[in-house]
Design a protein around this nucleic acid. Sequence first.
DNA 1: GGAGATTTGGCAGTCTCTGCCAACGCGGCG
DNA 2: CGCCGCGTTGGCAGAGACTGCCAAATCTCC
Lengths: 201, 201
Amino acid sequence: MTREAQGKGATTSTLWDRTRELAAQEIPRTALRLFTQQGYDETTIAQIAREAGVSQRTLFRYFGTKEDLIGGSEERFVTLLTETVREQPADAGVWEALRAAFKAALSLHASPEQALQRFRLVHHTDSLRAAYLGKRVRCQEELLPLLEARLAPSGTDRGQARAIVATAFACFDAAIATWIEGNGQGDILDLYDQGLAAVRS
Amino acid sequence: MTREAQGKGATTSTLWDRTRELAAQEIPRTALRLFTQQGYDETTIAQIAREAGVSQRTLFRYFGTKEDLIGGSEERFVTLLTETVREQPADAGVWEALRAAFKAALSLHASPEQALQRFRLVHHTDSLRAAYLGKRVRCQEELLPLLEARLAPSGTDRGQARAIVATAFACFDAAIATWIEGNGQGDILDLYDQGLAAVRS
DNA sequence: GGAGATTTGGCAGTCTCTGCCAACGCGGCG
DNA sequence: CGCCGCGTTGGCAGAGACTGCCAAATCTCC
C-alpha cells in the first residue's frame, strides 16, 4: 500500500497486489452475504474471517471496525461528495450542487438491487444505522465550508448554511427510507425532489 | 419498581424506594462529571460504578448501555415529543407543532449551562453522537404518523411527510451545533427559526 | 540466494455487555 | 417471633469487538 501502487499500466501491479485486492474484495462480500442471511448482530467477526479465509487480525487491519464492512471507507465517500460539489459551476445554487453530489453518491452502487439490499440492512440494524448517521454528519461538516462560500454573497450566515446542508441530507435520507418502503420502486432522486419540494412549499 | 411506587402522598414511598431513587440519580451524575473531566472514551464503566458506589452489574441494570448514562431514557423523550404534538390544536400547521415539540424538549434541561455541557459532550464524542442520532431517527419515525394525519388534507404523501419531519429535526440539530459553536450565546429556538427560514427561503 | 521490508497470524489483554446464581434486605404469613 | 416469598444486589464467568505485541511467512530488490 505504501508503494506507488495503482499503475493503470500493466506490469506495476504484481500478482501479489492482485491477490491482496481480491482478498480485500472477498471479505466485505462474505460479510454482506452473512449479514443478509442471518442478520448483522448474529454474525460474528470470527465467522466472517473464517469464511473469508483470513485471520481476525488481518480482517481488522483491512477494515477497522465491523461497521466498515458495509458501505466502504468513509473517506472515499467524503471525497466524492466534496469533489462533486467543487466541480459544480460557480453560479450553480447550493441545492443544485448538493443534488449533484447525491446523484454521484448513488452512482457508486453497482445495481439498484444491491443498493436496496445494503440500504435495507443499514436501515433495519440499529448499530449500523447509528454508524451511518455518524458518517453522514461528518460529511455535512466537510461540505459546510464549501457551501458557505457559495452562500456568502446572499448574506446567509454559517448557522443558516448548516441548516441548509442538514436539510438536504435529511431529505436524502427520507427519500431512501421511502424508497426502501416501496421495495425499490421509483427513483431515489425523484423522491428526493418531491420531499424537498414539500419542505420548501 | 413493580410496587405502586411514586405516591406523592407520604407513606407509600418506603425508605427503601427513596434509597433506590437516590442511587438512580447518583449514577448518571457521577458519569457526567467523569465524562466531562476526562472524556467519554477514557472513562470506564468500572470507574463510574466504583465512584457511584454500586457494582457494575447494578449499573447496567439501571442503564442498559454506557450511552444511556447521558441524556436519560429514550422513551421519556419520545413520549414528550409525541404528547406535545398531539396537544397542538388541530388547525396548527406541522411546522408549528414540531416547533412546539422542540421547545418542550429543550425545557427538559435544568439550565442552559447544563444543556451546553451535555450538548458539547455528545457533539464531540463520536460514539455518543451516533447513539443520539439513532434515538433521533426513532423519534422521527414515532412522530411520522401523527404529522401525516395533519398533512393529509393538503395532499401530501408519506414520503413528503417524512422529508418534512426529517428537515425539522435536521434544522434543530443544526441550531444546536451553531449554539455550541457560539458557546451558548443566543436562543436555540431563534437559531432554529433562522435556519428554517433560510431553508424555506 | 540473501538482506530488508511488508504482510500475516496468533496471543493476550481491555472494555462493554449478558446470563447465571448466591447473598442480602424487605414485607407478609402463621 | 420465626419463617418464607419476593425483589434487589453483587460477583463470576463468558461472549464479542477491538488493540498491541511479537514471531513467522512472504514478497521485493540487489
